[in-house]
Structures are given as structure tokens and as C-alpha cells.
Amino acid sequence: MPYSTFSWKTETGPGSRFNMTGRGLKTLSIATVLFLMAGFALVFLWVPMDADQGFKQKIFYLHVPLAIVALLGFIAGGVEGYRHLRTGDRRHDANSYVFIHISVTFGVAVLVTGAIWAKASWGYWWVWDEPTLVSFLIVFLLYCTYYPFRYAIEDRDRQARYASVFAITAGAFVPLNFMAVRMAESVIHPRVFATSEGGLPDSMLLTFLVCFVGIGLLWITLVKTEMVGKKVSGQVSYLRRRLHDDGSGGSVGGRIAPSVEAK
């Protein structure tokens, strides 16, 4: 075969590690499915009904883990942005982008499940006196601007650097925003974590933790899959450049999304 002698593997650093990522991904996705199935089974078949809220409280096991994971992802995106600025390694920028991207996607689910929960609990699709949901909306809106911002900067180095600055600024903004919105809310609603008995019963805590791990694993799986996609599409455009020698790079990976490429 003529192309078997083409040694892109030795020339693109990350290429040789591709298989390992692929295998880890398989284990990871199986663990994700198992945890999510176990969590949802616990939610619907085992955990006792909440005394105050009844059946509708079961949205809690989906909504809250999603929100926590998304926020942690935003903050991790800021950390990766910081590491990108520190080291100049483009892989950290790609990480930062993917973290934020998956968290924004999770954010849509957080807002929709939150609205459904509000409707079930208070009869309205949106309640302004629920500070966590409101601050989540603000954070979500901020991170939505990450895409047009990246898109508007053409130079790739500058785009990566500026996106990292954005990720850091927004990461610092997340906790500050939650504090301000919570302070503005004088009415304190009963929270599931702080019921009149003072804390979550063990069975609820266990169910919550299983769901949380499942959602967290889902986030990691999606991030890894996206990263593999970026890596492969980077390698494809590398191949194309080598083949054509015209430096056009190809369309894979899009213009906003950073691709992981080896020089």
C-alpha cells in the first residue's frame, strides 16, 4: 500500500496517543450509562417521596446535578484558559473551549428542567425569587456570548488568547454573581438541602450522589469525545495540507472551534 509508508504518526505528537483515548472513552461511556441508569432507577423506584414537595421533587435529582456540573465546567474552563496563557499550549485553549461548550449545552437543560420544576412547584414557568435559577440564567447568557466573541476574531493566536482571557474573567464572575443575586433575594425559599429536619435524608443523599456522578461522567464523556473529534479533524487537516501543500487546511473543525494540531 502506498500510503502505509506515510508516517504522519511520528510527525504529529498527539496522534500516537489517539488509541489510548479511544479505549478510555469506551470504559467511560459504559460507566456513564450504568451510573445514569442506576441513578434514574433509584429516583423512580426506590427513593421515598419528599414530604413537602411530593413527586415533583424528583426533578431535583436531574436539575441540581446538571447545574452543579455545568458551573464546575465553567470554572474548569477558566482554569484551562489560565493554563493556556501560562504555557502557551493550544491544547489548553481547546480544552477550555470544549469545557465551556459542553457546559453551555448542559445549561440549556438546567434552564428547561428548572422552568419545569418552577411550574410544578409554584405554577409559573419562571420565578424571579429563585436566586440560583436567576443567577444561572445570567451566567448562561454570559457564556453564550463566548461563541460570537470567538467568531469575531480572525487571527487564530489572538482568538485563542482572547478566549482564554474571557474564560478567566467569566470564571471569576460566576461565584460573584451567585453571591449578588442571592443577597438581592430577601425571601428565603425552603431548599431541599435544608428541610425542616435539617439536612437531606440518607436515601435522598445517596440517590443524589449517584445521579451527580452519572451526570458528571456524562460531562466528561462528552468532553473527551469532542476532544477526540478535534484531534482527528486536526490530523485530517494536517494530512490535507501535507497532501496539497497549499496551506488551506480544509473545513473540518469549523472556524470558531479550535482544533488540536501538531506542527
Partner: peptide
Amino acid sequence: LLLPLVVPLMI
């Protein structure tokens, strides 16, 4: 970019 970032300040 600025509007969401200044929400806490405005609050």
C-alpha cells in the same frame, strides 16, 4: 459581553 458581566454591579 459587558451587560451580563455588570449585572452583579447593577444589582
